[in-house]
Nucleic acid binder design. Structure first.
Length: 482
RNA sequence: CGGGGUGUAGCGUAGCCUGGAUUAUCGCGCCUGGUUUGGGACCAGGAGAUCAUAAGUUCAAAUCUUGUCACCCCGACCA
């Protein structure tokens, strides 16, 4: 998908728009509703996994970063920093910073919350009885980026960050498996997005983590990677950095083990990049703000009451099954409305006029195939609609998966590798010698990075590194990221 | 942070090279009235722009010069 088309799709569907601050966007009602729907799903899953929602401060004292920095390279190049607290009016009647209000301790707008959370764990954690600690925060994050892409790489974004602390390594690793399962479900079954998952290389992982597990997908046309979700195994890195200790059963002090995980509004960007056609967006029914749109056909000689009574009857029925249905009775022409809701990605459109009423049928159009058909209105109409919604959900996954497979290449020759990256990008499976220097060299020469090291058996085979020719135990995923 | 580009109404734009017939063009959208409505309706009327900003050149600047700001694109960066 071209960038211009991508931005146009976002703005024309009223998902989001540019604000007047570089890299900062305005999420509009339709886009925010999509986010709320995604939120609802994750929130439910996290709560089921015994996470509790919390809220930590937006501003983090710089000294917490100093503490962390002893062990971990942080986000120092992407921070927004609060240094003053007062504005005054100058002689030209303009607001300027009052230099006398300079803070002794600068405050950093959170680029992530591990620091302030582990600093707080210090107070919360005393005994082995305190575990596990499972908390989740819904909030905004600021990471000032030099180059932005709406919803994919914003300087501000909304996200969910889960943080956990465990008594031992085993429990922390179990937690990671739980979250893996949860994210897999979200991405595949709710967002209908095919993905490849695996571990980040040391070069690509979160510096504060012992390892990072990632979920990645590739875009339809450009074949660029988008990171969808990450899970970090923090090991004892943060507990040691913030001196968080507990007393175990044997009355010995120990450092707890941590994990963190997150998904962001980038998921909306991924949805847009992946589920679209010439008519616009195609939203997965499970997260679509409107699942069924009803377009009334009112002509000069139409009995309006008859049509709207009929529509209300259908609406009521669908609502009984919790189907999100809306009727557009504005004065625009039907054609206008057809294009509008197709662009917005509404999964099902129902058209109702006197023709339908007289025959006791409705005209129904699927967004994914754009095929029209008539359905008789009998008792099982709701069931049929639910079926179609399910069908669309699965079908758009299959289409996206096909696209991903088409762009997946197994390559064992470095020249071919270079050629693919520069012409027909995608997901490249090649051997790598597990050496960071090789990784850097390949990036330097081709701009491709290792997106992940997948752990499934099908990737495991003895081979030779595409760059160095040294022995490799498995294929890894190369590509160019957004 | 380097290189390039752009800034004219809510949005997209013409005019800029070669300064003046500009009352700043056109399309979409918006408002009023009417006729319409089965794949982006039509007619009539209307509102909406200190041409990003500051200074300079000139009898005269959207147009030329310089500074500033903002945004976009391409790189570097992006746990």
């Amino acid at each position: 998908m071209e960038d211009k088309k991508y931005i146009k799709l976002i703005t024309s569907t009223e998902i989001a728009e540019y604000s007047n601050i570089k890299g900062f966007m305005i999420l509009k009602p339709y886009g925010y509703k999509i986010w709320e729907n995604i939120k609802k799903i994750i929130n439910k899953m996290l709560i089921k996994n015994k996470y509790k929602n919390v809220y930590f401060p937006l501003l983090i004292p710089k000294n917490l970063f100093d503490l962390e920095n002893k062990y971990i390279k942080t986000f120092s190049k992407e921070c927004a920093i609060v240094t003053h607290t007062k504005l005054i009016v100058n002689k030209k009647n303009k607001l300027i910073i009052d230099k006398r209000s300079k803070l002794n301790e600068f405050l950093i707008i959170r680029p992530t919350s591990e620091t302030i959370i582990w600093n707080t764990f210090n107070k919360w954690i005393k005994s082995y009885r305190d575990f596990p600690i499972l908390i989740n925060q819904w909030c905004n994050i600021i990471r000032i980026e030099m180059r932005n892409k709406m919803l994919i790489r914003n300087s501000e974004f909304l996200w969910q960050e889960g943080h956990s602390a465990h008594i031992n390594e085993k429990d922390a690793l179990l937690e990671i498996n739980k979250i893996k399962y949860l994210y897999k479900k979200l991405i595949k079954y709710y967002l209908s997005i095919p993905y490849i998952s695996g571990y980040k290389t040391d070069k690509e992982k979160f510096a504060g983590a012992k390892f990072t597990y990632t979920f990645e997908t590739i875009t339809k046309n450009k074949g660029k990677f988008i990171q969808l979700a990450t899970i970090h195994f923090l090991s004892q890195i943060f507990s040691k950095a913030f001196n968080v200790k507990y007393i175990n059963k044997e009355n010995i002090q120990e450092y707890p083990w941590g994990t963190s995980c997150g998904v962001s509004t980038r998921l909306i960007g991924a949805l847009i990049m992946i589920h679209n056609d010439d008519h616009g967006l195609i939203l997965p029914p499970k997260i679509a703000p409107i699942q069924v749109i009803i377009i009334p056909i009112i002509r000069k000689d139409t009995n309006k009451n008859k049509v709207f009574n009929f529509i209300n009857f259908i609406k009521k029925n669908l609502k009984k099954k919790k189907i999100k249905v809306k009727c557009d009775n504005t004065s625009k022409t039907p054609g206008y409305k057809f294009y509008k809701y197709e662009n917005m990605g509404v999964p099902i459109r129902i058209t109702i006029g006197e023709y339908e009423i007289n025959k006791n049928i409705i005209e129904i159009t699927r967004r994914d195939t754009l095929k029209k058909r008539y359905l008789y209105i009998k008792k099982n109409l709701n069931k049929k609609i639910l079926n179609i919604l399910n069908n669309i959900q699965k079908n758009i996954y299959m289409i996206a998966e096909k696209n991903m497979k088409k762009k997946t290449y197994i390559i064992d020759n470095y020249n071919e590798f270079k050629n693919k990256i520069s012409t027909n990008r995608g997901l490249i499976l090649s051997h790598w010698d597990n050496n960071t220097k090789t990784e850097f060299k390949i990036q330097e020469e081709t701009k491709a990075t290792i997106r992940c090291i997948p752990k499934k058996n099908k990737f495991k085979e003895i081979g030779k590194c595409i760059y160095s020719g040294k022995k490799s135990k498995q294929r890894v995923v190369f590509g160019k990221s957004y």
